[in-house]
């Protein structure tokens, strides 16, 4: 399938599409934590690197099959999501953001000192198992599962926690457990995305998962519209392609990218798609009478 595609689409575009697919998986994970449940996480790249390194080391040093390492990466990230989710019991808002930043930095420093991971030189020679077909099959699967989850009892409880934690608790939602659950799901998706990334790029290094990577993922969630799956997807597509398109302005690229972020937020303060869900799309396209767009 991948071989067939590469005959018709040139490698550069295929690469960008794979990148979008991987980013969608990562961003949907962060969307559950930050967008849906409202817990500001600025350390998503930390979970991603745990998944990437776990999967890569199992493939390279321990010769595990690809699927097993991918699964192990996601599990390891979820375990850390659980550990990091615990302090959220007590911390709120920006204190939580600080803990997630600190966590991601600690993970980065750990991998900078981690001999089997090649330290700053990075880990190369990871077998290439990921291609367009696999990434997009997984991405689509995760989009569907995500939509199902957010429409379920648990998903609605997540939204409730974001809107008003006290009210949610009063309504009988076990907020503590659900917040930890949100962290675990988000982290496992980050780990999965990290594993896919490692087996696609064939090379990972600690600097790939720095603070700016976390920020980039957060940008995608917020730009798309907090808590909205179509929004997260759109935000991912726009912000993955924007830096590539801006190559025409050469060294002014990041200047334009920064200005673009500001302008997009000024003109679409609630994100490109606001808080629109699949559900709203259905309503809009199948029932012309209902108007649900937020202003």
């Amino acid at each position: 399938m991948d071989a067939l595609l590469s005959q018709y689409i040139d490698a550069y575009y295929l690469h960008l599409m794979v990148l979008i697919g991987i980013n969608i998986i990562l961003v949907l994970g962060l969307n559950i934590i930050t967008g849906v449940t409202g817990q500001l996480s600025m350390g998503h790249a930390g979970f991603m690197s745990i998944g990437a390194y776990t999967a890569a080391i199992m493939s390279v040093h321990l010769a595990f099959p690809f699927w097993a390492s991918l699964l192990a990466g996601a599990t390891a990230a979820a375990a850390f999501g659980f550990l990091l989710g615990l302090p959220t019991l007590r911390l709120e808002g920006d204190y939580l953001a600080m803990v997630t930043i600190g966590f991601a930095e600690i993970v980065r420093v750990f991998f900078l000192n981690f001999e089997p991971g090649g330290k700053a030189v990075g880990l190369s020679g990871i077998p290439e198992h990921t291609g367009f077909t696999l990434v997009w099959t997984m991405a689509l699967l995760i989009i569907v599962l995500n939509a199902k989850l957010l429409n379920s009892r648990i998903g609605r409880s997540f939204y409730a926690i974001r809107e008003n934690e006290i009210a949610a608790e009063a309504a009988g939602i076990n907020t503590t457990r659900l917040k930890v659950l949100a962290f675990m799901i988000g982290a496992s998706l980050a780990g999965l995305g990290g594993g896919l990334y490692a087996h696609y790029m064939t090379y990972i290094a600690p600097q790939d998962f720095g603070f700016m990577k976390s920020i980039e993922l957060l940008n995608m969630v917020v730009l798309g519209g907090m808590g909205s799956i179509p929004g997260a997807i759109l935000g991912t597509i726009v912000l993955t392609l924007a830096p590539e398109m801006l190559r025409i302005v050469a060294e002014y690229r990041l200047l334009f990218y920064g200005a673009l972020l500001v302008l997009l937020m000024i003109f679409r303060p609630n994100g490109l798609l606001g808080d629109i869900r699949w559900y709203d799309f259905k309503k809009r396209w199948f029932n012309k009478g209902v108007k649900t767009w937020p202003s």
């Binding site: 930050t34 957060l218 917020v222 730009l223 920064g258 200005a259 972020l261 500001v262 937020m265 303060p269």
Partner: peptide, 15 residues
């Protein structure tokens, strides 16, 4: 939301 302002701040920082 506060987060949109945060993204705007990140944009300014990169700029």
């Amino acid at each position: 939301s506060r987060l949109s302002a945060l993204i705007s701040a990140i944009g300014v920082s990169i700029f």
